[in-house]
Amino acid sequence: MFYSLGRYILLLRLSFKKPEKFSVYWHEVMREMVSVGIGSLGIISIISVFIGAVATIQVAFQLSSPLVPQSIAGGISRDSTILEFSPTISALVLAGRVGSSMASQLGTMRVTEQIDALEIMGVNAPGFLVAPKVIAGISMIPLLTIISVGLGLCGGYLACVITRDISPADFVAGLQDGFNPVIITVCAVKSVVYGFLITSICCYNGFYTEGGALQVGESATRGVVFSCIFILFADLIVSSMLL
């Protein structure tokens, strides 16, 4: 365990050394940002709309008492979407979509000796291959989370329009009532931490793949599983510290 942790820290240290040629690294960062951001936009949009709609319907069902104002459902849906649903569920989905892709890519390069070739030529392989992916994750996953929050709240509004369990006016009033800005801070911190965990853990598992094609798949699976575990652990730590 300590050996793996040492290799993980060493990989991060090598990844963020001063680049040999900044323009090449910048091109890689932009390419990874497009892959992580634009490539994940569709699945995040679909999931966010449906999660927001389902969350609103369930809150309306649980607060069906005539003694409870319907506008409370809007506030509960808003807070749960910003605090938990959008950052955490989006991160778990991105761990499977983005993390497995990164681990598979690096694992394939390792078993086909492309990484060895880069190191022989004097290229800082972790800096060229890992750092752009980590930077893209830290920068794009928070943006995807912002989009997820907006679409989740829109999904809740659509659920009110379609089902009429809660009037749309009451839902909007609940969204505006009693807003605490600290939930935005918690959401932002979570999304940045999740972005770092997903990319760094999956890149670590892919970079140190040993064997052949079978081991590439195992590395990708291991990276996704460990990413999901650490996402949930970080969710607990960040929530307990900031709330």
Rank of each mutant, 00 (worst) to 15 (best):
E84L: 05
K18M: 05
M30K: 15
K17C: 04
L5H: 05
I72A: 10
T145D: 13
G96D: 08
L236N: 08
V68Q: 12
W26R: 09
V36L: 09
V193K: 00
G6D: 11
R7P: 01
A136P: 05
L41N: 09
G155F: 06
A173G: 04
E32N: 14
L175W: 12
L243N: 12
P66I: 14
F50H: 09
A117N: 05
S64Y: 12
F233T: 08
L41S: 15
T112Y: 04
F226T: 04
I43M: 12
G99D: 06
G37A: 06
L151C: 03
A188C: 11
V34H: 08
F233V: 11
T108V: 10
G211C: 11
T209I: 05
M1Q: 04
L10V: 00
A91C: 05
P181N: 11
G127R: 00
S219F: 03
I231E: 03
I162A: 09
G155N: 10
S77E: 15
G75L: 14
V186G: 00
N124P: 01
K17A: 08
L236E: 07
A117Q: 12
R31C: 03
T112A: 06
S40H: 06
E84K: 01
L243M: 13
R110V: 06
P126T: 00
F22W: 14
L5W: 14
H27P: 01
S86R: 02
R97K: 14
T145M: 10
L236F: 15
A213Y: 10
H27K: 11
D79N: 09
V24I: 15
C202W: 05
V189Y: 09
P181L: 13
S139G: 03
C203I: 03
A95T: 01
I120R: 08
M121S: 13
L214W: 04
V123Q: 07
E20G: 09
G37W: 08
G107T: 01
I147E: 10
R7K: 14
L236I: 10
G107Q: 06
S65R: 11
S191V: 02
V54Q: 05
G156I: 07
I146W: 14
G223Q: 02
Y194Q: 07
F207G: 01
A55Y: 11
G6I: 02
T209M: 09
V149I: 15
K18R: 10
S65F: 11
P66E: 10
F179D: 10
A60L: 09
F230I: 02
T199E: 07
V34K: 12
V161T: 12
A117I: 03
M241R: 01
S167I: 04
I183R: 09
S101T: 13
Y3L: 11
L41Y: 11
G212I: 13
L151E: 08
G217L: 13
C203H: 00
E113T: 03
M102Y: 15
V225E: 06
A53E: 07
M33T: 08
I46R: 03
V189Q: 05
K17P: 00
